[in-house]
C-alpha cells in the first residue's frame, strides 16, 4: 500500500516538475542587480530605475545590491564570481569596466563578463569656470600656450574618463596642464568653481547645473542644446570621442536563452516612454546597443583606455 501511495506521489511530483519545466522560463525568482556605487549616486539612480522597469517587463523582482568601493571594482569582482545563471547581473559604468582594469591588478580579467546591452551614453564636454579669463576654446588654448604648467585640470578620480579625456586632449595639443585629482565629481566641481583648477570634463548637464562655461565637446556630434559649442572635430583636434556610458552586464558564459531574453526586454525598456522621461529628468541619453554591438563597443573602449593608461604611465 505504502509503495502504491509513494508511487502515486512520485508520479504526481514528476508531473508537477514537468509542467513546471514547461512554464519555467527565466526569470522564476528574484534577480539581484549589483551596482558598484553607493545609493543615490548617478549610477545607482539610473540602475535602480532601469532594474525596476526591467523587472516589470520580465514579470520578476529585480533587487539592487549596492556593493560600493574602489571605483566600482568590488561590485564588478562580485559579479565576475557569480554563477552565470542570470540571477546575478550588474549595472556598471565606463570607469569601472574600461578604465579601472588598466590601473591596477584586479581579481578578475577585464573581459570576465557578458556585456548584455548598453543603456545610456552621454557626450563629454570640456568646461571651465565662469570667472576664468577665457570664454572660448581658442582663448583658453592661447592662455595655456603662454603659461605652460601654470593651470590645472581636475577629475573625479585618477584614471577616470575625465582624467584620461582631458590629458589626451592636452597631450594632443602639446600643452602642459597639470592634473589635480579630486575625490568624486562633486568635489571636482567644487575645485573648479572655487577657482582652484581651471578645467574639468563631464556630461553636458553640468554646464547648466553648476553655471559653468562649456569650451568644446569631445567627438564630432554637435549638442542640440548648445549649438555654439564646437566639437573637437570642428576644431581640428585629433582626440578620441570620449563618452560617459552605463552598461548592463552578466558574468561570463551567460546562457544564450537568458541573454536573449534579457536583451529583448532591455531593448523594450530603453525604448519605453517611461525610460525616456526618466532620461529627460536626469539629463541622460538612452542609448541601446545589443549584446554583440555592445561587446564590440566595450572592446574598443577598453583598448582606448588601455592605450592611454600605458601612454600616461598609469598602467601597473
Amino acid at each position: 500500500m505504502l509503495r502504491v501511495i509513494s508511487c502515486i506521489f512520485g508520479v504526481c511530483a514528476l508531473l508537477c516538475s514537468l509542467t513546471a519545466q514547461a512554464h519555467a522560463a527565466y526569470p522564476e525568482r528574484p534577480v539581484t542587480v549589483i551596482v558598484g556605487f553607493g545609493a543615490g549616486g548617478a549610477t545607482d539612480i539610473m540602475g535602480r530605475a532601469f532594474a525596476e522597469l526591467l523587472g516589470k517587463e520580465l514579470g520578476a523582482t529585480f533587487i539592487i545590491k549596492n556593493v560600493a568601493g574602489a571605483g566600482g571594482t568590488i561590485g564588478a569582482a562580485e559579479l565576475a564570481k557569480a554563477d552565470p545563471d542570470g540571477y546575478t547581473l550588474g549595472y556598471l559604468p565606463v570607469a569601472t569596466m574600461s578604465s579601472q582594469p588598466n590601473l591596477r591588478k584586479l581579481p578578475y580579467k577585464w573581459n570576465a563578463f557578458t556585456p548584455i546591452c548598453l543603456v545610456t551614453n552621454n557626450p563629454v564636454v570640456l568646461v571651465t569656470h565662469a570667472k576664468a579669463p577665457w570664454k572660448t576654446f581658442q582663448e583658453a588654448v592661447e592662455h595655456l600656450k603662454q603659461n605652460p604648467g601654470k593651470y590645472f585640470f581636475t577629475s573625479s578620480s585618477p584614471g577616470s574618463s575625465p582624467h584620461i579625456s582631458q590629458q589626451a586632449l592636452f597631450a594632443a595639443l602639446g600643452l602642459k596642464v597639470n592634473h589635480m585629482p579630486s575625490k568624486d565629481s562633486g568635489s571636482a566641481i567644487q575645485a573648479l568653481n572655487s577657482g582652484t583648477v581651471q578645467f574639468y570634463a563631464d556630461p553636458p548637464v553640468i554646464i547648466r547645473q553648476f553655471g559653468l562655461v562649456g569650451l568644446a565637446v569631445f567627438g564630432d556630434k554637435k549638442l542640440p542644446e548648445y549649438p555654439d559649442l564646437p566639437t573637437m572635430k570642428e576644431l581640428g583636434i585629433n582626440v578620441p570621442a570620449f563618452t560617459g556610458w552605463h552598461g548592463f552586464w552578466g558574468p561570463a558564459n551567460l546562457p544564450a536563452d537568458v541573454l536573449s531574453r534579457l536583451e529583448e526586454a532591455a531593448a523594450k525598456v530603453i525604448a519605453s516612454e517611461e525610460f525616456r522621461q526618466l532620461c529627460a529628468r536626469t539629463d541622460m541619453q538612452a542609448s541601446y546597443l545589443n549584446s554583440a554591438e555592445f561587446t564590440k563597443f566595450f572592446e574598443s573602449e577598453y583598448a582606448l583606455y588601455s592605450k592611454y593608461a600605458k601612454e600616461f604611465g598609469l598602467k601597473k
Binding site: 548617478a42 539612480i45 548637464v205 547648466r208 547645473q209 553655471g211
Partner: peptide
Amino acid sequence: ATLIMHGVTPGVR
C-alpha cells in the same frame, strides 16, 4: 538625487 528623479535639477539655479 531624489530631486533629480523628480525633475528638479539641483544646482546654482
